[in-house]
Design a binder for these strands. Structure first.
Lengths: 205, 205
DNA sequence: TTATATACAATCATCCATGTATGTAAGAAG
DNA sequence: CTTCTTACATACATGGATGATTGTATATAA
């Protein structure tokens, strides 16, 4: 029954996909590795082969979504030099919404991270990771807002540090409400409007 | 060993306090009712006497903090008619921060609700409760912003609905980051500044 | 070709949390 | 004063979930 490396990698992905769905449906704590295995069409042996334990499986799923998301944000915020600073921030926020709407995997993963995970014990360290990533994003935003101030598009009297903190708060809050509410609800329908208003509020009028 | 009614109420509070600390330390899923009982100085029998099961205990703890918080917000936002509208919103947001800083019980409870709870199975219904409360708060805010527009203090061209949604997003994001970061970190130190900036951004300049 | 590492499946022992059922001493009602 | 009810403690039965161990067939390397 021994598989080739590509097949092994494929079952690894199958397990991750199955786990994603199980975690999303029943939460992390209440899903058994047996359920994950069954959903993936394998046995617990396979799960334990690819992942040391449940928390490592969770981490793999999270990184699978978080890392591309972060890379993309860096790219948009810092590398897109031809677009003006505040527009890059709008692009970034709006792109985030687009990924949420388009990619169910990202949506489910972020939903698990937001509403179906207890950051305690093994997972407590992940909060520190979040803090670092927030700091990094905040630093990026600060840099972009500083650019905006230089070219005169930032609202006068607004500190780039404060503006960056505001945008981080906005993103975190928007994400949490977006995930909480259904398609027809308030925040989701207004999401684009909210992004526009947020960026406009920081622009010199 | 039978206790008087006041003593019984006291052990009920003891159990809730113990559970609060256990949930905060180990998360909801990983704390045993045995641990809660031990921390409260009783046995599981007492816990099961006062609460049907773990989720009811969680709900009791949450309502113990949420309801006063909501009542207070209603009071500040709607009843304080002598204060001007936008100032009431600032008072509300700033008061929220004050409670967070002052009251460890509120802090721990909100921390559990944010980072140490999986909203799944029994708890899935609580998300609906959150949605309703958000809607209610948003309605309150909308009303206050509408007042502000009437008396000319709202920034021109800003829809009260949109402003209310922005403030809700701001509050949710601020709370989440405030809880995530330690005392010395960015968001906490800037929290007051952020509140001021948020309200100022909505005021006619 | 042979040997070894790989990629799982199957089985097992253990522990632990839950819920319930029963016991019981002491307040409260009459 | 007794009876009933309250407010727990104790004990029990049950059902998983975990992690480790063992088994095994096949890639793959030498």
């Amino acid at each position: 029954m021994r598989r080739t490396k590509e097949e092994a990698e494929q079952t690894r992905r199958q397990i991750m996909t199955a786990a994603l769905n199980c975690f999303h449906a029943r939460g992390i704590a209440r899903t058994t590795l047996e359920q994950v295995a069954a959903a993936a069409g394998v046995t617990r042996g396979a799960v334990y082969w690819h992942f040391a334990d449940k928390s490592e499986l969770v981490r793999a799923i999270r990184e699978d979504v978080s890392l591309p998301l972060l890379d993309h944000s860096d790219l948009v915020l810092l590398r897109e030099n031809k677009v003006e600073p505040l527009e890059r921030i709008k692009l970034f926020l709006s792109g985030f919404l687009s990924v949420l709407e388009r990619d169910p995997r990202t949506r489910k993963t972020l939903d698990i991270m937001s509403y179906k995970c207890e950051y305690v014990g093994d997972m407590a360290g992940d909060l520190q990771t979040f803090r670092k990533r927030h700091d990094r994003l905040r630093a990026c935003l600060t840099q972009v807002y500083a650019e905006a101030r230089k070219d005169g598009s930032l609202r006068s009297g607004l500190d780039p540090d404060l503006a960056a903190a505001e945008t981080l708060v906005f993103l975190v809050g928007l994400l949490r409400l977006w995930l909480l509410e259904g398609h027809a609800q308030g925040t989701r329908k207004m999401a684009r409007q909210l992004v526009d208003a947020h960026v406009m509020g920081r622009r010199k009028s």
